[in-house]
């Protein structure tokens, strides 16, 4: 019995550790006084207004939104094709290709970010054009992030797929492209939707990969938050953080209504 209580306590402790910082940041964002102290003097929504008025956060939000959406639009189709190629063929070194495509998540983001930084500087000298700090340079780095998420999630959805429906359609005279469009693609949809969600958010929230690649006037939201936090933590920053938590939770719950995330991921 004592063991069972201990196990329950560990479960509760685990979730407290996971959620405590997120709950705290949400509570602080409603505190009236500028210097965070407990208990609050009064509650207010003014920091949300203030957060949007801070040009750095508003701009960062827009920049991150641009980068994450375009990177997702490029990376998810590429990753989906690759997952399809891996699932529908058998060639030597297939396992290696799979591992290779997941590598961008295995290489530490700060190492990959430093490497891309030097690479961009070199390419700038060779090509005589700006790359570092440009939208294109940032998007390229973030596409790299979307590939492993997509390959992993779409592969998982393809693994449990019954091929007899495809064979039936082909036997009934459907052309390969029709089979793909009418049978394969709809069956892959849960994996693709989950991949798009994870790619987008992973890119939007990424700090380390983008840290050295941002430039003046083009800073992503997490980088803007980091430089702010190095000096102070106040309710304005808490408001920015809370908006992100709320958006991510909402996106996940909406996605979950259409595809059961607990089954695809």
């Amino acid at each position: 019995m004592a063991g069972r209580v201990g196990v329950r306590a560990l479960i509760v402790l685990a979730y407290v550790i996971i959620f405590a910082p997120m709950v705290t940041v949400a509570i602080i964002s409603f505190f009236d006084q500028e210097i965070v102290s407990v208990p609050p003097e009064a509650l207010t929504l003014k920091w949300y207004v203030n957060a949007w008025a801070q040009r750095d956060f508003a701009r960062g939000f827009v920049t991150s939104l641009q980068i994450a959406s375009i990177a997702t639009l490029i990376g998810v189709p590429l990753g989906t094709l690759a997952a399809l190629g891996l699932a529908r063929s058998s060639f030597r070194g297939k396992e290696a290709v799979n591992t290779f495509l997941l590598a961008p998540l295995a290489v530490p983001a700060i190492v990959a970010g430093s490497a891309l930084y030097l690479y961009y500087v070199m390419a700038e000298n060779v090509l005589d054009m700006d790359i570092k700090g440009t939208l294109g340079g940032l998007i390229a780095a973030n596409v790299l992030l979307t590939i492993p998420w997509t390959v992993r999630l779409v592969s998982a959805s393809l693994a449990g797929l019954d091929r007899s429906a495809e064979e039936a359609a082909a036997n009934l005279g459907a052309r390969p492209f029709t089979v793909f469009r009418r049978i394969t693609l709809p069956m892959m949809r849960p994996g693709i939707v989950a991949a798009a969600l994870f790619s987008f958010v992973a890119s939007f929230e990424n700090l380390e990969l983008n840290l050295l690649l941002v430039g003046p006037g083009r800073v992503t939201l997490p980088v803007a938050m980091l430089s702010y936090l190095e000096f102070r933590m106040d309710p304005t920053l808490a408001a920015v953080a809370t908006v992100q938590i709320a958006l991510i939770a909402a996106m996940m719950l909406i996605t979950d209504r259409f595809v059961k995330l607990s089954r695809v991921v």
Partner: peptide, 15 residues
């Protein structure tokens, strides 16, 4: 929480 960025969480820990 996997999708919530580390900076967001750090802000919570500071508080």
């Amino acid at each position: 929480p996997l999708l919530v960025g580390n900076v967001v969480r750090v802000a919570g820990w500071v508080g």
